[in-house]
Design a protein around this nucleic acid. Structure first.
Lengths: 243, 243
DNA sequence: CAGTGGTCTAGACCACGGG
DNA sequence: CCGTGGTCTAGACCACTGG
């Protein structure tokens, strides 16, 4: 029934997700793990793996002794912070038409903080990429990305900077991407930001992400700052008791 | 070597965490899963379970074919948003002395939004609990919690409101607590908030959490709003590629 | 090539929930 | 009490990394 790659568990997860959307389970109750395992012809562990992922996303609630149930609340969760997803997808998940506008791509001298965060010398330069993301033709995210020029290994064009950085890095820098260390910072929009994001007069505060990206050798390879219209792009997440 | 409860995997995780702090592994490399399984006399799956949790916390990095390594960067992560932890612990993790000040406990009429979020009728009241958390005697978090009075089943005193709500609920409301659905919202501090949190003149923006808590039957049972001094209590997290 | 982590299986026992 | 999810085991094969 299933092939390998992506993993069986991932396929089972996808299958169940679809079934949850399509099917009306009795009282939102999902068949037991044993039954699912037999139906899908995989081991119970694999089913459990898939269900665990769905539970992490809040799509499903498990109760020992009772069963596994669909969580109808969590259609409200549009973004899962722990996962990196392209901003276009985030905008799509909010039901809007995404757009990307590449504002600029240029080599610059990093400021002191940025140089320190990326372990750069005084003479090292960075490639700075400015983008503006729109949702239904309204600007919602403004981001600046800094990549040390010394790690860029392949020739690139402006257009190559449009996709997410973590695709640029493997492609043009021969760098793996492992994870972001992200700070969530609130701020009062500066006049410059107000103009770029077309903020209405009443909208004063913005949310920003300040992120340092690391490769699999745990070396910092990219810095990114993103400013969000939190009123248009809700940042919502699920929090659980001590896992 | 280990007892059961908490789970073996949890104990192994704890054991490894200690060992990471105490031991200097060669080039930060942790023994292989097979070796650990033999040493600790548990199955490799259990070791993997423990390592997966450490990896989620960013404490460890795994590389297929190469090994598992300590991540020395992630001492910087003070808060894991996906997990609910008492604010006192969060403050402790920042290296500060935590304090709780119970500002008020009183029955009130919920506003329209709150009533809708908690599925309340027009006549239902809520117990509102105001707290102020300090770090090294400096106020850093101000929180208000709303619990529908109709679910309160046991007599309580003011002091019972000091611990986290998700302890109050099982104890006095016979309610299980399953998860929070949390919105992250930036805002410009109002004069009232400025006074409560003793904000310095330059500090304009605050971070707030607007959370609805659900029980295991997926019914909303509590609303909480928290305002953070993000400059004193850094909100930092690890983001990975699509799990 | 040997050794690592990644995935999957089949089977066992436990703890809990609801009838 | 039975059926559910929670935990653990032993063993297998794969994919990848590094020397």
């Amino acid at each position: 029934m299933f092939k390998r790659s992506p993993s069986l568990a991932e396929q089972v997860k996808f299958h169940l997700k679809q079934r949850i959307l399509d099917t009306d389970f009795d009282k939102d109750r999902i068949p037991s793990e044993t039954v699912l395992a037999q139906e899908l012809n995989v081991s119970r562990n694999t089913v459990r793996d898939a269900l665990s992922r769905l539970e992490m996303e809040g799509i499903v609630i498990r109760k020992q002794g009772a069963g596994t149930f669909v969580n109808r609340n969590v259609r409200l969760v549009k973004t899962r912070l722990e996962e990196i997803i392209p901003y276009e997808e985030m905008i799509l998940a909010h039901g809007c038409k995404p757009a990307v506008d590449l504002l600029s791509v240029k080599k610059t001298q990093p400021d002191e903080q940025c140089a320190a965060q990326l372990n750069l010398n005084a003479t090292d330069e960075v490639l700075s990429i400015e983008k503006l993301f729109g949702a239904d033709d309204q600007p919602v995210i403004y981001s600046i990305t800094f990549i040390p020029t010394k790690i860029i290994a392949e020739p690139y064009t402006k257009e190559d900077a449009i996709p997410p950085v973590y695709q640029f890095l493997p492609q043009f820098c021969r760098q793996s991407f492992a994870y972001y260390l992200s700070d969530i910072v609130p701020l009062v929009a500066t006049p410059g930001l107000r103009q770029i994001l077309h903020l209405p007069p009443r909208k004063l505060a913005l949310l920003s992400f300040e992120e340092i990206g690391f490769n699999r050798d745990n070396e910092p390879i990219v810095k990114a700052i993103s400013y969000f219209r939190d009123d248009l792009l809700r940042l919502r997440l699920i929090r659980r008791d001590t896992g």
